[in-house]
Each structure stands twice: as C-alpha cells, then as structure tokens.
Design a protein around this nucleic acid. Sequence first.
DNA 1: CTAGTTGCAAAGAGTTTGCATGGCG
DNA 2: CGCCATGCAAACTCTTTGCAACTAG
Lengths: 141, 141
Amino acid sequence: MKTRRPASYSTRQQKLILDYLASLGDSHVTVFQLVRHFEQEAAGIGQTTIYRHLEKLAARGIIRKYVLNDGKSACYQYVGNDVCREHFHLTCEQCGSLIHLDCELLDTIQGHLLREHGFQINKLKTVFYGTCGKCLSPYTR
Amino acid sequence: MKTRRPASYSTRQQKLILDYLASLGDSHVTVFQLVRHFEQEAAGIGQTTIYRHLEKLAARGIIRKYVLNDGKSACYQYVGNDVCREHFHLTCEQCGSLIHLDCELLDTIQGHLLREHGFQINKLKTVFYGTCGKCLSPYTR
DNA sequence: CTAGTTGCAAAGAGTTTGCATGGCG
DNA sequence: CGCCATGCAAACTCTTTGCAACTAG
C-alpha cells in the first residue's frame, strides 16, 4: 500500500526552481527575489507557480521557510536532501549570517524536551536568534 | 535641550490598550483578538489605533512582537519590565500554543553557546518550534 | 487519455496610510 | 488654541484560490 506519492510530474518550471534554489547554497531568498530572477531570465514562470513549488518543497523539507520578524515577505533556503536536517541553526541578528551548528549538547536538548516537557522539537524550523562571534567582538555595544 | 519625548498625550485608548496587555501577563494575543476584545467591551477603539499603539509599545520594548511561521497575523506579548526575559519559549506548530519554559538545562545552553561557539543567544527572540504534548498523543501522525 | 500543473486574474488576509475630526495639555 | 491622537475607509502588500488551458506519463 503505497500511501504517499500522490503522483507528481516533473516539469520544466519545477526543475528550474529547484535548480536555482540549490545553486544558492545556504543563502536565503525571498519570493520577490525569485519572481524577479525568473522574470529577468525570461523563464516564463508565473509567481503562482513559484508559490506552489515553494510550498511543496518546504513541506518535503527540501527547502526551509523563514518568516522574518517584520512579518513581510517570507524567505526560503535550500536545505537539500539531508544536509542541515541534523543540526540546529543560529542566525545573527546583526549581520544576518546563518550558522550551522552540530553540537552534542544541543542534541541532548531534543531528548530532554521530549522526555521532560513532552515537546517534540522541529529542528528544521527552529532557529536561534542572537549575535555571532564576529559581531560580538568588535564593538561590544 | 530636551531631545527625546516627542510629545505624547495620554489618552483613554492608550491606557486601555496597555492595561489590557499587562493584564494578560505572559500570554500572547493577536491583533485580531485585541480588536475583538475591545469591540465586545464596546470600548470604542479603532483597529488603526490598536496597530499604532502596538507599534509604539513594541518599539519601546514594552511588548514583544512575534511573527508566527505561517506569516499570518502577528502576535504580541506583554513583557513589561522584566517578565519573560529569562526563559525560553516553545510554540506548537499544530495548535499554535505558546509555552513558557523555565528549565535549567536550557539555561546551560546560553552559556555553552557563548563559550563554545561564541554565540550570544537572544532569548527574547528565540522560539523553539515543534509539537506539544497535547498534539503529540492523540494521533501520532 | 487522465490527472497533475500552469498562470492569469481575482479574491483574501493582514497591515498601513490619507485625511478630517476629536481631545490633551 | 496648537498639536498629537483617533478612526473610518481606501490603499497596499503578500499570498492563495478559481478556473480554463496545458502537458507529462
């Protein structure tokens, strides 16, 4: 009984979008940037299609959706098929850099939250906000 | 030369809004809930006014603005002068509830991140996403 | 041929702004 | 009385949906 796999065609647009996202590596893009990019490329991809693919890709965990604090346009970031699934992410509020953190202590948190607080943390969505080393040292505000 | 204090009157609406937010303590409210609340109270406060006050209060750090992951309506929470500054927050992606977590283990994270990874975490902004106990038990997906 | 996909335009949802009126000091 | 605050309605921004045409398998 093959429950999932609701049948999915591979289309030109799909490939273009995924390829572009993958080409960006760690960096994040807004929907607006994507729309503009494909417009300039005259790729012929409607923004509705972009929204729809982003939604699917995010649901499958291939990209990640961030909602910035200003609540405006969302940001998406390529995560790939397995990279970035196992570690947490930190983002610097000063310089905006995204830091990938593999750390045993943090891994224990996952278990602790589940056992002690009944909370199943979602590593894909959780992002720590703060200030990175680079931004801390120069000017200690 | 009195630089700041750009002249601010104290109005009925201002007081009502701040008092209500303060009365909620830790819990968070959406703009929609605020609007509805004052409507039911027949308080005569337009939603424009609510938006404007929330903006000012957030700018002054008296309340905190959260943007949930769905990017829809923002949530505001009274912070007052110190409450909620010391613990972390978890939010359930299923039911949307906000959980306040005072936990020693998590507190060690702050120090660990700083010492080992040079990252100064901002507890005010960091929110853990996941699934809460209530939503985990019923249907284990 | 069938079912998923596309994309335009229109609808929605949440938030902001223009502007005339009202209220604090 | 001067200036900020208020609030209605309209404008805006970002996102989703309706629907007819299109296309992969």
